[in-house]
Structure formats: C-alpha cells, structure tokens
Design a protein around this nucleic acid. Structure first.
Length: 474
RNA sequence: GGCUGGGUGGCAGAGUGGCCAUGCUGCAGACUGCAACUCUGUUUACGCCGGUUCGAUUCCGACCCCAGCCUCCA
C-alpha cells in the first residue's frame, strides 16, 4: 500500500518513496530532559509511534531513531536549582520519560541516542564546516555563518530580510551576521564541557541532531520528524549544517511536523508554564485514554486539550472495548492487540491502514474502528464476529489501542474484590428469580455506590467499573 | 510586519463539486421486571462577501477571525 505524507518543505502531500525500499530511515527529535515530560511531548511521541507502526506494516526494515537532548542550558540551570549532578538529573528524567511513554503505549525506538554520546562526531562536523568556510571561531564560540548557505530559509520559506526584520534576539557582538547561530560554546569549569580544538566547551543544540543522524542513519534519510515549533530555527539550522557538510540540502527526503497541543487558546509550553505532565494526567486517566484523545485529532492540526476531550475519549474508547466484549460472547476468547505486532499490511484491515497511510489520518482511522465495532455489535455469526474482532484488534495494533484485555479494561480501579462482586450478583440473580425486585435493585444500587455497574445479558449478568467523576474523586 | 496552518452541526473532528463521515451528547422507539449495554430512527453544519458552475461547505478572489513560528520549546 502506498503511503502519502505531507512534506513541510515542499508544502504539499507527496507519495512516500523511500531512498531504499529495503531500509527506511526515520529520525524524530525527542524532548530535552530536565523535568517530567508534558502531554504535548507525549503527543509528538504518540504521533510518530503510530507512523512508525504504519511504516513497519508496509516496509520490511525500518530504523527509527529518536534522540534525547541531555546537554542544554536549561538542564544546567535545573540541576543547579535541585543541587544535584547534571548526569543524575538527565538520567532520572530519561527514566521518567520512558515510564510516561510506556503508559501512553509508545514503543521504544530502535536507537535512542544521547547528545553527550556524540561529542566526537559533533567536533568532526564542526571542524569540517569551518574548513569549508561555513563556520568560524570567535571568542571561544564557533558559529555557523548563515550567509555562506544559499539554501538557508528554504525549509520554512523565510527570506533573510524577513528574519532580520522580525529578529527579537539580541545580537552577540562576535557574530559576523545577526542570523549566525552557535555550533560550540565555551563552558566554565563548573559546567559540563569537553575538550575541543576551540577549548573546553559544549555543543549548540542544532548540531547535536546533525551529528546523531549522521552517526546512526548516514548522510541521507527518508523522514525527519518533530513538533512544528522546531521547524524554525532548529530544523532550518540543522538543515544548514548537514546540508553544507554533505553539500546536499535535500539530505532529508520528507519533513514531517506535528501540530501543537493547546491548553485553552494557547500552546502548552514549559516557558508559558501552562503544562500538564503525563504523570499527573495518569493519576486520573488511563494512558490509553490519553492516547485516544491525542489520536482523535489530525497530527498536523493543533489539538485543544481539556477535560471534555478526555471524557469523550474515554467514552469512545469504552465503546470499542464493549464491542470486543460482545465479540467474546459470540466468538469466544479474545486477545489483545499486542498479538498483532508482527502482522504485515496485507493482513491488516484496510479500513484502518488506508486512512493511516493517507498522511496519518487518525480521526478517519478511529471512525473506521467504530464502524468495525458497530458491525461487530450487530453480528450474530461467530465466524463473522471473529473476523471482525481480528480486524478491530489489527487496527488497534496500528493505533496502539486495545492493548488491554476486555476483563482488564472493565475492571480497572475496582473498589470491591471480584469475589464480593460475584457474590452480590448471585444474590441479586436469586432475588430476581423470586421476583424480589426491590432487593435486586438495592443490590444494584449498592454495587453502583462502589463504582460497579452491572448489565443483564441473555448469558447472565456482567459488570464493569464506572469511571469516577471529578466530584466523586475529590 | 513576514512565513505556516486553520475557521464544519451541543462538543470533538474527517471529508467531498450534487448522495451516510465517525465518536460523544440530546430526543424518540425496540430489548429489559426497571435499568444498563446493544440496536433502530432523528434534530441543529460547513466564518463573511463576491465570482465560476445546472449546482459549492468543497474551486477562484477579497475580507474578518484564530493558532503556531520569526527567542528556549514536541
């Protein structure tokens, strides 16, 4: 199946043709680790997680690299504030990030390089850029000389004049051109630093990615991803460095950028302080619910994040699990979508894979999931139900949803033990049999007070945990 | 100011030159002892103004509004 992706640089949707169909290479910018990640970071990770699942369903061999920026002035400041060593901070934050990603159903990338592990490669690239006349040393800094790159601005369609007009940054006196950006900067003795031809120092942010891409994927890659807020200046600068280094400004064949997650009318960002961490959201919501909420919008659009979105997502996700439960009744034992990890495109449901291949249209893919669920709910034939269930789970695998068993999903956070619940349900069944409906309703009310809702089916009574509302939680 | 991307029914959110998106919610029925679940049906749409067209939410143009980027950010 063909994949089409919107390419930020060409500003159009293009058919994806890999450089080498036997080996697809994708690089995505991960977070800077100095604190708990927020749900906006989670969005980016989830989006590219789904995209890589789709790539893997279509291509045999995919290498997915997602970096961790572990050297940065904010990290230094945060470590100082907490009075802990810098490497302890970045290690703890990276561990925490892995926990949060896992809760969101994000699989590990093939390689997760850290900037600090690539200093040699960084120094090599900077030296070469200096030699080629694209960079220069000044007062212990090495700067990229922007006017030396005829392609500068071509990723984000910026003219050099516009950049000067809109410049909000103070121009350091040692810069030859106000647009020049730092490749290497000096470190005082108490800051992390490495010896280099330009003295002890540390790399600038943009050069890290150039170096890690080259080290792990080579001089040319198929796809480069990240948040749209990284397009300028981060990716523009990275393109300048790598493009000049290789003399190939098109070393990235497709640029993909996810939209921002908004809290209220504004982008969620650490500098604005309007963030919700994944950790705190997980206190009240299942990671899978958060993932559904993220996928409910298209990845290039900004997503308005609020309690209503989460509540709707939770109800929608529940309806998918309910269909799976129906399937269990008709077609017998069910499994989780994890069982579909190795399945290739030909065996995955067209209803879900099709939309995902069309520039990762997750809202339409979810619509496809619900259409499958509806067909499952009206099905009475066990082989048909079983086939629909397989499709639902296959689609679930692509989206990273339906990873829990039906039993697990409906019994999450139960207040009573299963034994107690079963005993009460049995008592209610007897009350019903003898038409003591008052007692039967009493038991139902009692269960509900403990967060257990029951449903009578022709095969007996089943139960589930009802979600706590905000007022009940407090 | 420049550069991106948007404005769709109560909410979220796809999509299309003429026909059902989908989910949640509301309403009415079926099922049920009553509920719940499920099913069936159903109301309210495409920012504004022009143009092209037999016909535009969808194409073209102007305008208004929103978000992102132009500083660190996913």
């Amino acid at each position: 199946m063909d994949i089409h992706i919107y390419d930020t640089k060409r500003r159009t949707k293009r058919r994806f043709e890999p450089l080498n169909a036997d080996h697809v290479k994708i690089y995505v910018c991960g977070p800077t680790v100095y604190d708990r990640i927020h749900i906006g970071n989670g969005l980016s990770a989830v989006v590219f997680d789904v995209f890589v699942r789709v790539l893997r369903a279509v291509f045999k061999n995919v290498t997915y690299v997602r970096n961790v920026t572990d050297i940065d002035d904010k990290i230094n400041a945060r470590a100082l504030e907490l009075r802990i060593p810098i490497d302890e901070l970045t290690r703890d934050c990276t561990d925490a990030m892995h926990e949060d990603f896992e809760a969101l159903g994000v699989l590990l990338p093939d390689v997760e390089p850290k900037a600090t592990g690539h200093i040699n490669e960084i120094v090599t690239m900077i030296s070469s850029l200096i030699q080629q006349g694209h960079a220069y040393e000044a007062e212990g800094h090495v700067l990229f000389y922007v006017p030396s790159d005829p392609n500068y601005g071509s990723l984000t369609n910026k003219s050099l004049e516009d950049l000067i007009d809109g410049a909000r940054i103070e121009v350091a006196p040692y810069k030859k051109d106000p647009k020049d950006f730092v490749l290497w900067k000096p470190s005082s003795s108490e800051l992390p630093g490495w010896e280099s031809p330009w003295g002890r120092g540390r790399p600038g942010w943009h050069i890290e990615c150039s170096a890690m891409i080259r080290e792990h994927l080579g001089n040319e890659i198929d796809i480069h991803g990240g948040g749209t807020d990284l397009a300028f200046p981060h990716h523009e600068n990275e393109m300048a460095q790598s493009g000049c280094f290789n003399d190939n400004p098109d070393y990235v064949k497709y640029w993909m950028h996810n939209g921002m997650l908004n809290l209220g009318a504004q982008k969620m960002s650490k500098s604005l302080g309007n963030i919700q961490t994944v950790q705190e959201l997980l206190e009240d919501h299942a990671g899978e619910t958060l993932r559904y909420a993220i996928l409910s919008g298209h990845y290039r659009q900004s997503l308005k994040w609020d309690d209503e979105l989460i509540a709707q997502s939770d109800r929608s996700l529940t309806s998918l699990y309910q269909a799976l439960r129906n399937a269990e009744r008709i077609a017998g034992e069910s499994s989780t979508s994890d069982a579909y990890a190795q399945i290739r495109s030909a065996d995955l449901p067209e209803e879900i894979l099709g939309p995902l291949c069309d520039d990762l249209n997750t809202p339409r893919a979810l619509a496809g999931m619900h259409e499958l669920a509806s067909r499952l709910n009206i099905s009475t034939d066990s082989s048909e139900a079983s086939s629909l269930r397989d499709k639902l789970l296959g689609g679930g695998w692509l989206l990273g949803l339906l990873t829990r068993s039906v039993a697990e999903f409906f019994t999450q956070d139960a207040n009573l033990t299963e034994l107690e619940i079963d005993r009460l349900i049995e008592e209610r069944a007897q009350a019903k049999a003898t038409k003591q409906y008052h007692r039967a309703d009493e038991i139902r009310t009692e269960l509900l007070a403990n967060g257990i809702a029951i449903e009578d089916t022709r095969n007996g009574t089943i139960w589930k945990v009802v979600k706590k509302t905000v007022s009940e939680t407090r």
